[in-house]
Simulated assay, not measured.
Amino acid sequence: MSYILSSLVPFFRKNPKLLFLVDGIGALLTLMFLSIVLPAIRQFIGIPLKALHFLAVIAIVLLLYSTACYFLNPLKYRFFVKIIAFANLTYFFITVGTVIFYYDQMTLWGFFYFGLEALIILALVVLELLIGSDRRTL
């Protein structure tokens, strides 16, 4: 995984605006899963609807922030990338906390979905922190 991340860093260093687009698309996909797909199959996931809706609200906030940054085109990308990195990290911890809280109700499919989501979020956070901390980023 580190090879993939290290190959993405030069690209996003030159095009930091696209990192907001990637983040926004990820937040949109998460929102769609949390608000449409998972509620429809929640008996196979094991997390109550209220918890899915709570996570979906956070995904909406992340989607709005990333989309705004992409379209507003801020001059100081590094600062705004760091904000979304820490927001994503917070979402990661909230998601892990939700999984722990509902551990006894979760199914294997639920662990698989949220585990995969957690890995993707962590990879994105690492990428965002690398870009946000790199002085060579535009």
Rank of each mutant, 00 (worst) to 15 (best):
P10H: 13
P10F: 13
F11W: 14
R13Y: 01
P16F: 05
K17S: 12
K17M: 05
K17P: 00
K17C: 08
L18V: 14
F20W: 06
F20M: 07
L21M: 15
L21E: 15
D23N: 15
G24Y: 04
I25A: 06
G26E: 02
G26N: 07
A27Y: 04
L28A: 15
L28Q: 02
F33H: 08
F33N: 14
S35H: 08
I36G: 06
V37T: 07
V37F: 14
V37N: 09
I41Y: 02
I41L: 03
I41C: 01
Q43C: 01
Q43E: 05
Q43D: 10
F44H: 00
F44Q: 14
I45E: 01
G46P: 10
G46Q: 07
I47R: 10
K50R: 14
A51W: 00
A51M: 11
A51Q: 03
H53R: 10
F54V: 11
L55P: 04
L55C: 04
V57H: 04
I58M: 08
A59N: 05
A59C: 06
I60E: 04
I60Q: 09
V61S: 09
L62P: 01
L63P: 09
Y65R: 03
S66V: 03
T67R: 02
A68Q: 06
A68P: 02
C69G: 01
Y70R: 04
Y70S: 04
F71G: 00
F71T: 09
L72Y: 03
N73V: 08
P74N: 03
K76Y: 09
K76I: 06
R78P: 01
F79S: 13
F79D: 10
V81T: 09
V81M: 02
I83P: 02
I83N: 01
I84Y: 04
A85L: 08
A85I: 03
F86E: 05
F86C: 03
N88C: 03
N88P: 10
L89T: 03
T90Q: 03
Y91C: 02
F93H: 07
F93V: 01
I94K: 07
I94P: 03
G97Q: 00
G97W: 00
G97M: 05
T98F: 08
V99M: 08
V99T: 07
I100W: 11
I100Y: 11
I100P: 00
Y102P: 05
D104M: 12
Q105L: 09
M106V: 13
T107M: 14
T107E: 11
T107N: 13
L108S: 12
W109N: 06
W109G: 04
G110A: 11
F111E: 07
F112D: 08
F112W: 09
Y113P: 04
Y113Q: 04
G115V: 09
G115Q: 10
G115T: 07
G115N: 11
E117I: 02
E117D: 06
A118Q: 00
I120K: 11
I120S: 12
I120V: 15
I121H: 12
I121A: 14
L122M: 13
A123M: 13
A123D: 09
L124I: 01
V125E: 06
V125A: 12
V126M: 12
